[in-house]
Amino acid sequence: MKRFLSALRRLLPQLAALGIILLLNAMISPGFFHVEMQNGRLYGSLIDVINRGAPVALLAIGMTLVIATKGIDLSVGAVMAITGAVAASLITQGYPLVATLGGTLAVGLFCGLWNGALVALLDIQPIIATLILMVAGRGIAQLITEGIILTFNDKPDLIFVGSGAFLGLPMPFIIWFVMAILMVTIVRRTALGLLIEAIGVNRRASTLSGVGSRSLLFAVYATSGLCAAIAGIIAAADIKGADANNAGLWLELDAILAVVIGGNSLLGGRFSIAGSLIGAMIMQSVNTGILLSGFPPEFNLIIKAVIILIILVVQSPTSQSLWTFLRRDRHPTAKQERAVR
């Protein structure tokens, strides 16, 4: 309980930012917080946020781990396109749902292992290594769909993954939430979290302490590929078709932003999956708010950029230390702690 509270305190800036954005949305669009049951599912703008934010939330889970190792995965958007195409292709060829999902996840895993091999075995810089698949990925996806939007209007079981509801909640939300709990449990209940943070801070020193840095790097990139595959399935199932040109387009950047807004450092080390997920929800709240606002679309990107800029400025080390400075008299213990060196 104590540790839960301290985790909550660490995430306070992110939670506050999310709260403020949501309040702003409510001011722009009075019915924002209104949620009702409709056709056996919850319905409202808040539900849209957790539903539409699913792809970025899923990507952010994998991206958090990759960034914690001082890496980056630019290929996740392209992997979404590939896996969406694979899923659509398998299901339209008549494979059952389980085989389709299994095959698609395997492809995502393979994409991640490819990145992992370039980074861990060949020591190629992550940004370059993953750029390869980012560039090639959409081409591969188009080869699979043969240049068309591969639709599957008559496959309700796969469509359910993208737009169905369970216990009134949209499936995409349930999937990312379960995935998040699973991943947090895996990294925090085992030693993976510690070892990932260690190689992110100092890979050489960790290797010299006997940490299997290579297999860990493989594992985080594979996880990122897997998360991208799930996001790809959701994106395809949502529109009942695989759009190789547009599925996941630029979402790698949204995922990186979500991780950073979530308070994680691009320099690796300490990470918080929960923080990244809050970051993803902040991003989606901004998007939804803009759509509800009725501003002309020419302003979309500017508004988004300004809001993100404000959040990052408030979180920046300089303004954080300014904050500490302003509160110094009330917190003498913090000062003492810094004095010990």
């Binding site: 510690l194 070892l195 960790s206």
Partner: peptide
């Protein structure tokens, strides 16, 4: 460069090699 994991705590630095030998699981 080869020894300490600067950003991690004293506790984690001490536990690291033993943890690495036990394996992540």
């Amino acid at each position: 460069t080869d020894g300490i994991i600067g950003d991690l705590s004293v506790r984690e630095n001490i536990a690291l090699a033993l943890q690495a030998r036990r394996g992540w699981a």
